[in-house]
Amino acid sequence: MTRRAPLSLAARLAVAAAVVAVVLVLAYARSGSGIVVSQAVLTGLLLGGVYGLVAMGLTLIFGVLDIVNFAHGALMTVAMYGTVLLASHAGLDPYLTLLVTAPALFGIGMALQSGLINRTMGSSLANQLLLTLGIGLLIENVLLLSFGSEPRSVAVGYAAPLRAFGAVADLTRVIAFLGALGLAALLYLLLQRTRVGTAIRAVAANPDGAQLVGIDVRRMYVLTFALGTACAGAAGTLVAPFVTVEATTGELFNIIAFVVVVLGGMGNVVGALVGGLLIGLTEQLGGVLLPEQSPLLAVFVVFVLVLFLRPQGLFGRSS
């Protein structure tokens, strides 16, 4: 088997930068306005950060448990409703509710994994997919039954537009972006620098090997699923101030998160963040380049292109 010399990191970054430059020039030509382009870039990055956070939870679960968690979006919605309730009934600042929703979603994830999903570990992929799909449906409909179909929203009193380079972004989106980055960094540190994190990475690398060296793999599964769910929960709370909250709101992010996970390399947490930013940018710049088409078309094109050139995803390892 011949091996092509892989491009060095510097070379890859250069290629990426060149592609970005070309896209920006095209977008400028299409819109005729530098402001529109910088707006698209800003919105894309801010949105992308949140996509990244949602995707990180998903990719962690996939990388360690080998499960595609179809319930991820619905769990995010649970956190959104939690934020709406706490903010409107207890008068809490929506961002403070993170202290409640993230641990709550962590707990829910633990319960789901230890109570239900752990039993299907090792059984067929179809079983597991059906299970998470069923859980997602169940959660969504419980939400619909409990809260009704009326759209909810939660506002932040100090929300204000922030301006930079002629572009504008609402403070709530900037906070969501910074929150996403912060949590991403925390997750990364957890995985790289702590004992638990190293154990999780070992299970991802080789569950049997991990079991052999004394790691309780089933317990790690529970922990990892809970972490992934907590990520979804945190993302839900961060976006609640600027989305309309309904039982199906999480679905929107779910689908994009899947694309990001595959694009970034399944199981790779850094890849999920970078992939999220890339997809956010693509969505916005695509909307400028092709105003008559759905921005998802541009996302699709980029998705196919990346997978064609690098099937394991941007940061995935070729097996």
């Binding site: 154990a199 090997g209 060296v213 790691i215």
Partner: peptide
């Protein structure tokens, strides 16, 4: 053998070391 493929040799051993 069941190495932790993605990890370095050192990390492989470190995983075990930290267990005890």
């Amino acid at each position: 053998m069941r190495p932790f493929g993605a990890m370095t040799v050192l990390d492989n051993v470190a995983v075990a070391a930290q267990v005890r």
